[in-house]
Each structure stands twice: as structure tokens, then as C-alpha cells.
Nucleic acid binder design. Sequence first.
DNA 1: ACAATGGTCC
DNA 2: ACTCGGACCATTGTA
Length: 427
Amino acid sequence: MWAHLKDKSIILPAITAEEISKQVEPVLREMEKVGIKLDIDELKRFEGDIEEKANDLHNRILKIADCEINIDSPIQLADLLFKKFKLPTEGLKKTKTGISTAAGELGKIADKHEIIKLILEYRELKKLLTTYLKPLPLLVDEDGRLHTHYGQDTSTGRLNSFEPNLQNIPIKGKWGPKIRGCFVAQDGYKLISADYSQIELRVVACLAEDKEMMEAFNSGKDIHAETAADVFDIPLAEVSKEQRRFAKTINFGVLYGMSPYGLSQALNIPQNDAALYIAKYFDVYRGIKDYVNRMIDKAKTDGYVETLFGAKRELPNINSNYRVAVDADERIAINSPVQGTAAEILKLAMIRLADQLQVLGEKRKAKSEKPIARLLLTVHDELVVEAPEEDAEEISKLVKETMENVVKLCVPIEVEVGVGKNWAEAK
DNA sequence: ACAATGGTCC
DNA sequence: ACTCGGACCATTGTA
């Protein structure tokens, strides 16, 4: 499917998707066994702080509600907001059971009643408590380390993490970095975080062989600003914050098979405007437009699409009579090769890195008893490594080099590395 | 036990 | 009326 790419600037190792999955397997098992240290004392302190705040919010909400409802029940909450308080439901999404109380919907009526802000804040804290702060300490071993399990049974080839999932540890908001900061290096060690910069956009630029997007990656540092300049047809220096934000959303939207409606929702603009931006985007990035059409055609003809290393994704509904099902499969056809190829690049990097760290460990064995650097975590486009303090800077360079050179695409692959005592600091 | 709802991450 | 890719997990409420 991608054979035509391979005789150009792209250089891929001779390995199949199947073989990548097989070879990454022992790497995953070792990472599970090693685990990552959790600073339980620190986590408990945050738990106490947040529990107190959540309780306070809970009390204030019930006082305003002036009745005994369960705030955690969307049904009861909707009754309170839309029946008792008669808040406007116009423009709010509906669910099978009534009016949606999802954060995005409540945000739309946040200025209609003081209780909304309290509910949103309560929800945020409750989430942190029940999903992270309370359960995680129960799962650490006698050495204070947390051992996730990694799987590969996803539809795109990405890795998944469970019991516990360490791929959705908070990072945003006031508390995110504090919680991530509780994932720490063991004594005498540092954590190295290395993440691919815009890997999926770089991949699609290459799969699509889009001249303009390749140029953006080759020339500029800030791809979203470059895209804004291209789409709004202005010099890079004149791109406003707003325009960059738009461009960023469109760039992401492309990877997901965005519709005018989806973009209008994401940007909170009229659907007509969104349609115009998309049209302009595809006008500028002709190659991307062609890629989208090629993937849909391919799916309709063959019933599947595939990644750069040949992992297939079946699309059983692509020729169905139900438009929603067809639309859904079309979006998958657009996204899967991109997401899947990015996943393959990361897994390949893990295989290579594990290998190099192994070699390094053997060399060092003579001099020191200390285990050398070890791979701890993988989060889709990021790797977390634990290395002896004195080696951390050197190892971080090795990690970066390895990740950047595991394949050669038509645009440079860039990896951002950071070193720190904990996961938050390393990012 | 399971569906529905909601929320965290990339 | 509804709509954007891929995961995991908590809670409610029903079966």
C-alpha cells in the first residue's frame, strides 16, 4: 500500500508490524516487572487536601439544592438543575435518560446559576479522588512500586495500560502536575521523559506526501503557527494566538476525520465558518485532501486500510447502507494508518532502546553493581526511563537519539527530553 | 452482571 | 437530530 513511498527519502527497517508486536512483547513484560515508584506519603497529603475541599463543595451544593440528592447521579442532578431550578436546556445535548450534565454542557449555562461552578469543581476533585488518589496507593508493592499491565490488543496497534492504567494519569489543571509529581525516581536515580513532538502530524505529512506540510515541518518550529499562516494566508509573524488555536484544532481534526460540525463545536463557531476553514485547509494542503480520499477509496474497494509497516484495519461497515456507520468507518480509515504508524514507530523505539540499555548494562556490570537505566512507562508518544543520577544526562541523549532515528520519515522526527526527580519535573 | 454517563490521558 | 481517532475506570441504576 505504501510501497511507492519507500524508494524516496523514507527509510524503514525491514520488519513487519507483526514482528514489531512480537519483539516488543518481552520489553513490555520487563517494564511491568520493574514498575515505577510512587511517593505514597505525598499522594496521601494531596488526598487529604482534596477530600476536604470536595466535602466542602458537596455541603455547599446540597445547601443550595435544599434537598437530599445524590450529586453523583446524572439523573438526579438533571432533575435538580432543569426541573427544580428550571435552568435553560436550549442548546444542551440530550442523553437517553434526559438532559446531559456533562461538563461541556454545564459550562454553557455556568453563568445562569452559582451552583454550576460548584458542581464542576466538585466533579473534578471527585474524579481525582476516586480514580487516582484513593486506588493507586493500594496497588503498590512492598518496594513502593506500581506495576501496570501492558496489552497490545487495540484496533490501531497502540499499546494499552491497565490495572492500573498509567496512560491517563492527570497532567492538566491545578492538581495534574502535583499528582504526576508523585511518580518518582528511586533513590539515587532520575526519571527521563522523552516524547515525540507532533508524531502523528509528521506521519500524516509523509503518508500524504503533502508538500506544504512537509515544508512546514522542515522550515518551522511551530507547526500550528505555520498552519495558521498557510490557512489564513498571512506571514508567520502576524499569526495571532486565536489563529494559532484555530489551526491547532484543525490539525488535530484532520487526524480524526473531522466534520464541519465537529470543528464548529470544538471552536465554538458557526458551522458555516467551520466549513470554510476546512475547505481552505484542504485547498492549502492538497496532499492531505488526496490522502483522505485515497484512504476512503481504498477502504471501499479492499475493505481495509493499513499502516506503514502493514498492520491492517478492517472496515466492515464502509459499504453499508447506514450513513452514520459509513461515516464512522471513513473516519477510522483516515485515522488508523496515522495512529497505527505512530504506534509502530514508538514500539520500534522501545525495542531498540531496550536493546541498547541492555548492552550498556552489560558494559557497566564490571564497574558497578547498580542496575543501569531501565524503561518504565510508555504513553503513546512518550517513554519514561529511570537512570542513575550520574548517568541521566548521557542516557537522555541516547534515548532521544534512538527515538529520533528509529525510522527516517520525509520530515525530521523530533523528541523532547527532560530529566527530573519525578515525572512532572521531567516533562 | 451490565448499560449508561461522565471524565482522564494521548 | 446528530456528527472527531484510540484507550481505562468510577459511579449509578437496572436486570
